[in-house]
Amino acid sequence: MPDIEKLERIAAQKDAQAYRALFEKFGPIVKAFMMRQGVDAATAEELAQETMLSVWRKAALYSEDKGSVATWIFAIARNLRIDYLRREKTWVELPDNYAQEASSDTSPDEAVSGEQQRSIIRRALDELPEEQRQVVILSFIEGLPHREIANRLNLPVGTVKSRIRLAYLKLRSAVGEPDQ
């Protein structure tokens, strides 16, 4: 059963089996993700549970045109991490805030399915030169700001930014050019 169907079942009938399946697929990864961000195991556990609880509670708010289920869960986990770890306000809201304009956002010809897009992005990531992939991973997975990536790699901040920019351009052109 595709992830989206599991989510629909959770939304419609609080389907425990569907939830278990999503939990087993994503929970342990989210916990590991939190640990990569420099969190101790107990907090990572708590944040991962909280992420999956949000999936349960907000299942009805998910809309497919905002990306795959994995993308949605990533955004939830990221926001929880910002909230809990930095004790900062999460400024960038989850995509579900914009659900009401979803249809005007995506024109039909670029509506690639979540699964298609996922494999396109995966391939593009694998094809990035190592020095570009490294900075993307430090940014997304280790959660480091540009300045700290620069310190970690002993590089000028400008070099980090240009590597990230090059990576972005390659990833972006793999799924189609951005609008101007």
Binding site: F33, M35, Q49, T71, F74, R122, L125
Partner: peptide, 17 residues
């Protein structure tokens, strides 16, 4: 870019939960 983040998660080895 959120979907890039999701794709990167796939490379993480999971921790029991």
């Amino acid at each position: 870019l959120d979907s890039v983040g999701a794709a990167l998660l796939e490379d993480i080895s999971p921790t029991p939960l």
